[in-house]
Design a protein around this nucleic acid. Structure first.
Lengths: 168, 168
DNA sequence: GACTATAGTTGGTGTACGCAACTATTGCAT
DNA sequence: ATGCAATAGTTGCGTACACCAACTATAGTC
């Protein structure tokens, strides 16, 4: 490392600190507000947010097992099992026994499930269009790219959750 | 509206649709992963996520009333009342009777509260630094600005939640 | 002084989540 | 083959957290 580094690193680190702080502030504002929706017990068309995510996961990944869905959703398999119960109950998803591994199930959307998801996705897209309308057209691509990067990084972090946490 | 508009609008709308779709995909990936943390029953230093947000809200806004905090958190005042109970229990926040309006309370962080918040904020900042490290330095400012804008827009939307939702 | 409105608390209820224990399979090793 | 560890999923259970509604206490208005 070159000689310039001490002062430079200090300066650049504190800039990074600042940026991290600012990012956190903005993200937590965003999440609090964005998630506001999530606090609605019943989301759209009688689906909770988790159910929406699960349905979407099934549609995007079908056929997939319960474990796969669980890790996609970052949820415990027991939780997902019950979420799937609800979706099955609503005739949006079917649990088929897995052909090769009789312990496993295969999750598949029903026609109903696809239809409902299309409707929900449309409404959600409307919301995001409203968000994007206020973003200058040229920067939209960059914004999306950056959010993708954030998602990617957050996913990596998700693997080891409680590393930096202590209990009272 | 000029004659060009039909074809042009169609094209630009479908581009906007695409962008909205992409944004939604990226955001939901991000939120699922980011929120993973939030699913930890006990977050950092014995605080739940809601408690963290509440403590932060109190520190950023002190002195503030319970109602103010509730609307900041987009939560019901009864929920916030209990969250504050927990923070008071932990000696992180004090409820002082409001000087001018004896129905209201003033929420203030204790020295302990500030200390703990500083610790938590530091750890959280570390996480966001890791996120930012992978973002090119020149685009960090833009990213933060865009997240701020998203937050702002999401906040506006938060006001009228179930407009586009129907129940089964 | 009676009224309406507001701040906050408490009781009741529903739900989401994780952990642990269980069953049913699989697949490997002897 | 038979036994044993590992895995997929389900279920029981406890906890946290959210809302609504009912309540108390105070404020402001006429």
């Amino acid at each position: 490392m070159p000689a310039r580094s001490v002062a430079a690193r200090t300066r650049s680190d504190s800039k990074l600190d600042e940026d991290a702080e600012a990012l956190y502030g903005a993200l937590s504002d965003f999440i609090r507000a964005y998630q506001f929706r999530d606090r609605d017990r019943t989301y759209c068309h009688g689906l909770s947010v988790t159910q929406c995510y699960a349905l979407e996961g099934v549609i995007r990944g079908a056929p997939l097992t319960l474990n796969e869905l669980a890790s996609h959703l970052f949820l415990d398999k027991s939780t997902v099992s019950r979420v799937v119960d609800a979706l099955v109950e609503k005739r949006l998803v079917v649990r088929t026994p897995h052909v090769e591994d009789r312990r496993a199930v295969q999750l598949q959307p029903t026609a109903n499930g696809r239809r409902l998801h299309r409707r929900v996705a449309n409404e959600v897209r409307q919301g995001h269009k409203k968000l994007l309308e206020d973003v200058p057209r040229q920067t939209r691509g960059a914004l999306i790219e950056l959010v993708r990067r954030l998602a990617h990084l957050a996913q990596r972090r998700a693997g080891k959750p409680s590393a930096e946490c202590s209990q009272p």
